[in-house]
Amino acid sequence: MEPDGRPLGRAWTGVRAVDVVDVFSYLVVLGLFIQVFPAVISESFLVALLTAVLLKLVLELVLAVKKRIVARIRNSDRALIRVVNVVALLLVLPGSKFLVLELVDLVFGDAVHLGGFFQVTLLIVVLMLVRGGVRRLVIR
């Protein structure tokens, strides 16, 4: 711990060790997808690393939105509010994949191509599974 009570290494960045582990896990998964799926393309290692950082940021945002919607579903006493939030959750799930595709295209243009909707869906599922597995394995 730092003298002011913050964990070591967070004195100036605000980046947690778990965030770095997530980005490296995402980079490995992205690298595997680049090797396995011809539709998934990254021009260089640096671009793949930056894509992994972008994926980390977007997926953290999407997870926060999903958690908030699920909390509203659980805490609601009214059926109409639950139905509206379930519909919102059903829109966020596929919408997050389109968000990833559009942001990657916007930020990296032709330097990165993640394939189509189904490749991105599979990529995100694998990213979440690897993230959970690595966190269980490394962070206790």
Rank of each mutant, 00 (worst) to 15 (best):
E2S: 12
P3Q: 10
D4R: 11
G5W: 10
R6P: 01
L8I: 04
L8G: 02
L8R: 10
G9A: 07
A11C: 09
A11Q: 11
W12F: 14
T13C: 11
T13A: 12
G14E: 07
R16S: 13
V18C: 07
V20Q: 05
V23M: 10
V23L: 03
S25I: 02
Y26C: 03
L27T: 08
V29S: 03
V29W: 02
G31L: 14
L32A: 13
L32P: 00
F33V: 00
I34A: 09
Q35A: 14
F37W: 06
P38M: 00
A39Q: 12
V40P: 02
V40T: 10
S42E: 06
S42T: 14
F45M: 11
L46E: 14
A48D: 05
L50T: 05
L50G: 04
V53F: 12
V53W: 08
V53G: 00
L54E: 08
K56V: 00
V58P: 03
V58E: 12
V58I: 15
V58D: 07
L59Q: 15
A64I: 05
A64P: 01
V65I: 15
V65Y: 04
A71F: 08
R74D: 12
N75I: 06
S76Q: 04
S76T: 06
S76A: 15
L80C: 02
I81K: 12
R82E: 14
N85G: 01
N85V: 02
L89W: 13
L91G: 08
V92Q: 02
L93I: 14
G95W: 06
G95T: 07
S96L: 01
K97D: 00
K97V: 13
E102C: 03
E102F: 09
L103F: 15
L103Q: 08
D105N: 14
D105E: 10
V107F: 11
A111D: 15
L114F: 01
L114D: 05
G116R: 01
F118R: 10
Q119E: 14
Q119V: 04
Q119T: 09
V120S: 07
T121R: 05
L122S: 13
L122H: 02
L122T: 13
L123W: 02
L123S: 06
L127Q: 09
M128G: 09
M128S: 11
L129C: 12
G133A: 07
V134I: 14
R135N: 12
L137K: 08
V138S: 04
I139R: 04
R140M: 03
